[in-house]
């Protein structure tokens, strides 16, 4: 008799992975896909309707909308991913520290999270972006301050309940180190719980970043960020419907993709069955 080990079978990827991959590709390669210089003005051809040279028309200073939409992808999408990656890493780390630490450390971290959650979502980002204005860093810091607590709470709740389970006790009794227990027993379920939240979070971050851009408090023109583009185009809404629709549609499609993927992940956290 021998132990039969099955080869580790690759899990079938959930179908929602493809639109997500397309979004990621766009965020990475967007600027290279732009057919024209996104910042080249042409005051002779302002608010032009779509044509062969300008597939989506031009804006109020004659810039090519299609190029600006592509060039804006890293700002709108990439920044959102960066934001959530940072916030979820910080949140999960603090949540795990809270779950493993003593009563004082736990109370300190969790009360801090409560305090941050007591601010309405956009307010902190508004203040940071508004005061320190214009750059990527104030935006990142402001959004992160608002975002990390939900990840910390989720991580703390899952880790605390896992640490109480029999298999953690069994591992301690068998003499496994705390680090191994954290890695093998606690982290996988924590990450499984955080993944759907983070996917939905990227969608929310896209909305927040574009909202700040729209308010004129996010990334500053002429940076081709989708929200800032909408802000610039708003006075010309009556003349340039297609031009306005382009960044709007990009935001909608990106957030919709992430919302659907997040929901699919939440419904089936294993990502497509085990057999």
């Amino acid at each position: 008799m021998s132990l039969v080990f099955e080869p580790v079978r690759a899990r079938s990827l959930p179908t929602s992975i493809w639109p997500l991959a397309a979004l990621a590709g766009l965020a990475l390669t967007g600027p290279f896909l732009a057919p024209l210089d996104p910042n080249a003005q042409d005051l002779m051809r302002v608010m032009e309707a779509p044509s062969i040279t300008h597939l989506l028309g031009t804006d109020h200073v004659g810039r090519d909308i299609l190029s600006r939409v592509f060039a804006g992808a890293p700002h709108s999408l990439g920044l959102a991913v960066l934001c959530v990656t940072l916030a979820s890493s910080v949140g999960v780390a603090l949540g795990l520290i809270a779950a493993n630490g003593g009563a004082f450390v736990r109370a300190l971290i969790m009360r801090l999270a409560d305090l941050m959650l007591a601010f309405p979502g956009l307010l902190l980002a508004l203040l940071f972006a508004g005061f320190l204005g214009g750059g990527i860093w104030p935006l990142l810091i402001g959004l992160n301050l608002a975002l990390w607590p939900q990840y910390a709470r989720m991580a703390e709740a899952v880790a605390t309940s896992v640490l109480r389970e029999g298999h953690v006790e069994a591992a301690r009794l068998a003499g496994f180190a705390e680090r191994t227990i954290l890695k093998r027993h606690v982290l996988p379920p924590v990450l499984r719980a955080v993944m759907p939240l983070a996917t939905l979070g990227v969608g929310q971050a896209i909305m927040s970043i574009s909202a700040l851009g729209f308010l004129g408090l996010g990334l500053k023109p002429p940076t081709p960020e989708w929200g800032a583009m909408i802000n610039e185009l708003l006075p010309f809404l009556a003349e340039g419907f297609v031009q306005m629709a382009a960044p709007c549609a990009m935001i909608f499609v990106s957030v919709l993709t992430l919302t659907l993927a997040g929901r699919a992940l939440a419904a089936d956290p294993t990502g497509g069955g085990h057999d």
Binding site: E6, G166, H167, E169, L173, P188, P189
Partner: peptide
Amino acid sequence: RQRYQKLHQDPITAFVPHLN
């Protein structure tokens, strides 16, 4: 440590759920 062991009430939860 290893020579004093415990059998749990709910044996299924005494194993990591996501590993064979």
